[in-house]
Computed example of a mutant assay.
Amino acid sequence: MLKKANSMKQAEARAGDALRRLLEHVPILRIEDIEAEAVSADWRPDLIARLLVAGRRHLLVCEYKPNGQPRYARSALLELRNYVSQSAPEATPVFMAPYISPAVRQMCKEKEVGYLDLEGNARIAFGGVFIERMVTDKPVAEQRELKSLFRPKSAQVLRVMLREPGRAWRVTELSEISGVSLGHVSNVRAALIDREWARASNDGLVLAEPGALLDAWRDSYAAPAGERLRFYTPLHGSSLEDAARDALRTEGGAGHAAFASFSAAQWLAPYGRTGMHYFFADEEGLGKLRAALKLAPALKGENVVVTVPKDAGLLADTVEPAPGAVCTSPVQTYLDLSIAGERGAEAAEHLRQERLSWHE
């Protein structure tokens, strides 16, 4: 407990140093003192900065949280605003954390609370002073957390939830349907709640901001790991389509394959045809596609791309809008299109409007 308290004091000291460095660059401002508030039974801000601005005194009351995610930020903003209104009406409230995301920065603006994080993002306005700084890169820890949330096992949980975004889910249900352990589902649950992308209700976990979740997933998305194979097929038009649908029918047999990317989008939300055809398949499914489409390896002039992904969950998350037309899910298709160049981005946005708007 003592170790945790000392760690928190050190973090607050770093926050105080960051605030001092920020304010020292303002010509009309002089820092009289930045001090940590003593622990009290009543709520008190972590830091108070006493300033002279063009000869007039001003206070910044600051609250530091070791986690700047929306769930923690919202309570801090409420505490700051209540303290200022009751105890220091002329003071300026400032929220501080190791990293403050764009969503929380917007929250601070709406609540008229300044912010500063240890990465250098800041926005503080008072008495003729306006400071705003933005760092474009996310810190390594934040990038790591987001990547962890969208790794294959976690993604299996997210795919299940995004299929029915209005549904309340018990952890046990998500574990059973996604095939992911209870512990891992609990970690995903905590991460979604911290970012306010989901909320806990009496009935279970409900997505509160499916669009924001999908935005973050898209921004972190990379092509699935696996083997990407290029082929030439002599088939075209309806003959190719019919042969592919025959190959994609599983009917309990071994081998799985699905239309992917632009090819899946043609079934889910047609936008514009392309001369290339895309599939995901496991090894057995690849064999079926080879035979049905008469595929020949191609170093150039290819018109079929088959990805054999390491993540088996991609082939479990499919839809069948027409008999045999097995496609990657709308969410997966959207993600794949989003990294497929300018035309892919346009097709992705069309798909999102048609199939993933969720009436937000």
Rank of each mutant, 00 (worst) to 15 (best):
F95I: 00
D203Q: 15
F130G: 06
R195C: 04
I100N: 07
E176L: 08
R144N: 04
E110A: 14
V94K: 02
G127L: 14
G120T: 04
G166S: 08
W217P: 00
A212K: 12
M107F: 02
A168R: 11
W217R: 07
W197P: 08
S178M: 01
A125S: 15
K147S: 11
L205K: 09
L116G: 05
I131Q: 08
A198F: 05
S148H: 09
A216V: 10
M107T: 05
S201T: 15
L116V: 05
F130N: 11
R163D: 13
I177L: 11
P89M: 12
E164D: 15
E112V: 10
E209H: 12
S87F: 12
A88Y: 10
L149F: 07
E173F: 02
V140K: 12
V180S: 02
S178C: 00
E132S: 12
D203K: 15
Q156T: 06
A122V: 04
G120A: 01
A122S: 12
D219M: 02
I131K: 10
P93Y: 02
A190S: 14
R133Y: 10
I100H: 06
A88G: 09
K111E: 15
Y99A: 03
R189K: 15
Y99M: 05
F126L: 10
M107E: 08
S175A: 05
G127V: 07
E173I: 04
H184V: 10
E196N: 06
R170Q: 15
R123F: 12
V171S: 13
Y115A: 04
R105P: 00
L174P: 00
A125E: 15
E112P: 03
H184Q: 13
E176A: 10
N82E: 14
L146A: 14
F126E: 03
L213Q: 03
V180M: 03
E132K: 13
R81D: 08
I100E: 05
W217A: 06
D215E: 10
P102I: 13
E164T: 14
K153L: 11
P102H: 11
V185S: 07
A141W: 12
R151T: 05
D137F: 09
G211N: 13
L207V: 02
V140C: 07
G128M: 10
E145D: 11
V157F: 07
P210G: 03
